[in-house]
């Protein structure tokens, strides 16, 4: 009965929680439409700062940063998803083997090590082996820390798929590869897509590790924003932030529908 489940004040806390989470984002969103160049005074509604982002003085810098971010995120998420899918098959369909728990720890290592420590260690490593820092170093670092994020939804999905499906396929004369391609893979797809989306957004969002391993003159969107913010918050930063916010919302919505679809098909 509802009176056992409801606690007075919990609704208030929930609203407080949501206001706290959203207020800064919404206010920044509102100010991104401010006509005035001042960030304190409201000068009327305008899209002038969005125009500035795309065509203004700094647009070239932000465009190249956005392009770098996108390329790295697509490559890192794709590689991490493939690697994580293979790892999930070995961990959940590979029987028991020596080093299994060590492998499990290794997969989760990027989650356990604080980001700043990963950043420092990677910087030291690349500098020691004399690897020229640039887009490639960022990409390698991103693939590594995206693997566990891609692994989690894929493994969760695979765990929910009973082995009977593959066995039934093989019972009906499918080869191991056919059983994987025709039965297991389609069943895993929602997990794989969710893993890709998660890895993509994690890569796109990363600031700390990128900041350490990027080469001089190479920027991703977060490092470019960080550099700009260090000079003071300008309205064009708010316009970029709003655009990135929209990208995030699109991604959450997409992953929400993917998981919903996956549950229906189950």
């Amino acid at each position: 009965m509802s009176r056992l489940r409801n606690y007075p004040g919990f609704l208030g806390m929930t609203i407080f929680c949501l206001v706290l989470l959203y207020a800064p984002l919404i206010i920044v969103m509102i100010y991104s439409f401010n006509e005035s160049a001042s960030i304190t005074r409201w000068g009327g509604f305008s899209l002038v700062w969005y125009e500035d982002v795309f065509f203004g003085a700094e647009s070239a810098k932000f465009k190249s940063a956005a392009w770098n971010s996108l390329v790295i995120a697509v490559c890192a998420a794709t590689s991490a998803t493939v690697i994580a899918t293979l790892a999930a098959l070995a961990m959940l369909r590979g029987g028991s083997f020596r080093g299994k728990s060590a492998s499990f720890a290794l997969i989760n290592l990027p989650l356990m090590v604080p980001e700043i420590v990963t950043a420092v260690a990677t910087l030291i490593f690349f500098s020691t082996i004399g690897f020229q820092r640039g887009l490639l170093t960022i990409l390698l670092a991103h693939i590594v820390f995206c693997i566990p994020f891609a692994y989690l939804p894929i493994a969760a999905r695979l765990q929910g798929i009973e082995a009977h499906f593959e066995q039934a396929a093989m019972d009906l004369y499918a080869s191991r590869w056919q059983a994987f391609r025709l039965v297991l893979m389609p069943l895993m797809m929602p997990g794989i897509i969710a893993g890709f989306l998660l890895a993509f957004i994690i890569s796109l969002d990363d600031f700390i590790i990128t900041n350490f391993v990027k080469g001089a003159g190479i920027e991703t969107l977060p490092t470019a924003i960080f550099g700009a913010v260090k000079q003071g918050i300008k309205p064009n930063i708010m316009a970029i932030s709003t655009l990135m916010l929209l990208v995030s919302v699109v991604f959450v919505t997409a992953s929400y529908f993917v998981s919903k679809l996956g549950n229906q098909n189950r």
Partner: peptide
């Protein structure tokens, strides 16, 4: 254990990269 024979190859990229 359907993928037991291939598990070393499946895990290899993860081991190597991380």
């Amino acid at each position: 254990a359907a993928f037991a024979p291939a598990r070393v190859w499946l895990m290899l990229p993860t081991w190597a990269l991380i």
